[in-house]
Design a protein around this nucleic acid. Sequence first.
DNA 1: ATTGATGCAAACCCTTTGCATGAGT
DNA 2: ACTCATGCAAAGGGTTTGCATCAAT
Lengths: 160, 160
Amino acid sequence: MNRSLTEHGHGHRLPTSTVLRERGRRLTVQRAAIWDVLVSAPDMHLSAEELAERVRERLPQVNASTVYRTLDTLVDEGLVLRADFGTGRAVFEPAHEHPHHHLVCERCGSVTHIHDEELGSLGERLQDRFGFRLSDRETTLFGVCRRCPSSPPTEREAYP
Amino acid sequence: MNRSLTEHGHGHRLPTSTVLRERGRRLTVQRAAIWDVLVSAPDMHLSAEELAERVRERLPQVNASTVYRTLDTLVDEGLVLRADFGTGRAVFEPAHEHPHHHLVCERCGSVTHIHDEELGSLGERLQDRFGFRLSDRETTLFGVCRRCPSSPPTEREAYP
DNA sequence: ATTGATGCAAACCCTTTGCATGAGT
DNA sequence: ACTCATGCAAAGGGTTTGCATCAAT
């Protein structure tokens, strides 16, 4: 695990520098650092700014716009997935080999990963009934997780 | 149909002024106009700014912040639903009596409404497996609609 | 008369962009 | 060398907020 962008060959489908180079993109220290942070916290769903903070622990001068542009690039290349958990900012994770989906708790903000099969026949059903092909990209479902009470407290409450 | 906020009694579960008043909220001409625009275009999924434009056809001086605050109020009271179709701005619709969900096409941006039953056993499945209770609020699923080709054209493409 | 709602302007957050400089190939 | 990627600063879009005034109760 913890494959790096500078490592060559032998990955299943995880990126190496060749992935970027093959498409005429350059491997910079910033990109490598951003990628490393992503794969070292694969389930953290970091926002661009959180990612930037972690990258700056190693490369203190990295600019936010570089992070945004790099994330765009990695998403375009299919190496990174962008998700929206309804928090007002995008979150990112390295692309897994097998698609998975997110159950986001509206009370506590926790995120549960579920495998494709857990959606059951939903995809086929939507395909048959509406001709709608569910996205390859991860699906996010909102609700209330096991640990949180179903009904909200009287006081208005936000993500912790 | 086209019930207004100032109409009394007899609605199934659609709001009347009493809904607001019962909770110590005031019925203003702005709120009534905003509500009227919403119910007169129940499936338009208007953004706050689009809504404001339409409201201004009647009440030319209505401020955007009033629209935002009113929408917050109506959402809090359960009269309006807020949705996020991945366009960068929230969209709103009057709450229906029966929950429905949205299939959003990533290619053309079209939105298909589906009834709760079309999700099949998904809710129970998630409940059983993960103790996760799918949101009462509408669920949005992203994918590609019947009319659009599955694979994107070579040129990068956004919502039209 | 009270007090919540409005309008206005400014601030906010996340993200994008123009441009000169710097680094990867 | 060539050109893409970076840093910086500024702008952008959607949304929120502080405050004085206005209007619903």
